[in-house]
Simulated scan of single mutants.
Amino acid sequence: MTMITLNNGVTLPALGFGVFQSPAEETAAAVDTALRTGYRHIDTAAAYFNERQVGEGLRRSGVDRADVFVETKIWVSDYGYDQTLHAFDKSVRKLGTDRLDLVLLHQPVPERFDTTVAAYTALEKLYEDGRVRAIGVSNFMPHHLAELLRRTSVVPAVNQVELHPYFTQPDVQKANAEHGVLTQAWSPIGGITFYWDKDGTGRSTLQDPAIGAVARAHGKTPAQVMLRWHLQRGRNAIPKSTNPARIAENFDVFDFTLTDTELTALDALDTGVRGGPDPDVTAPERFEVVIPEG
């Protein structure tokens, strides 16, 4: 397993396992399968409403907790200093562990950025107290990151953002690199995206001819090629699935190497079109989401 060293010296596997949109009733089995397959990094979030099942899957697998890098995210309705400290307590109770490896703020929330800063200050306190090994952010654009750095003390270890061949966010990657922040890719194979060409035909990364050609050259699937692309570009990728065969397939990416030409070809597929929500768009309804107690 390839490992990545964060800016505070903590290491994590380059390939993780995500549970975004995984139904609660399927999550424990998926996490158990992933850990038995060889994954040692699990990414969840309070707003996924499956932290409890992630903890169950971890225990069911029999893998030592110390050998698994567990990551979660604080949702925006729990932002604020005291609120975020309490949100952390809710998450650890559900996950069944008293210490987490990485905690992120789920969104920048530019319309209430003072609250975002207060939430991050709470993460700094948790980090200082040793209750979390690293802290970071998710969906932060360069201007969000710059403002956070100006108003806080601990440089985020990670910025988790939408990133796949059709949306590479080079400006975000550049800003992250300049500050020593690891770029972590959600939707790393473009699974939530579907793009329409000018003639009205739909396409996805999984059917892209250029990716398909690279996959055939290596005897791999398009998904495996995209994950390998992330790893060779120095990113952390967190694919998700509840299908045991797909879970195993996504992990089978350590026995081949893409050429520089192939990496550049995948880089060139960027459309600049975001598939997920825009972090700068105000969405008041997200503050109405209530994260249950642990």
Rank of each mutant, 00 (worst) to 15 (best):
L227P: 00
Y81L: 12
E288R: 08
H106N: 06
G200I: 09
V154Q: 02
V154D: 08
W196H: 07
T72C: 08
R52D: 15
R228T: 06
Y127P: 00
Y120T: 08
G130K: 01
P13N: 09
N236Y: 08
V155E: 01
P170Q: 06
D32G: 03
P13H: 11
D101S: 06
Y127R: 10
D82N: 06
F256T: 08
N236E: 14
A237D: 02
G38Q: 02
P292K: 03
E285M: 11
E262Y: 09
Y127L: 14
F194Q: 14
Y120H: 00
V289D: 01
Q21M: 13
L6V: 05
V54E: 03
A185I: 11
Q169V: 05
N236H: 15
T121G: 03
N7R: 00
I4R: 11
Y79D: 04
F254Y: 11
A177Y: 08
L206F: 07
F194S: 14
A146C: 03
G96C: 11
V68F: 08
A47C: 11
L149D: 07
V158A: 00
S22V: 13
F49P: 01
D64A: 15
G18R: 13
T261M: 04
T282N: 05
A66V: 11
E26N: 15
N159R: 05
H144I: 14
Y195P: 00
R93Y: 03
V289W: 04
V225C: 05
R246W: 04
P209S: 06
K125I: 05
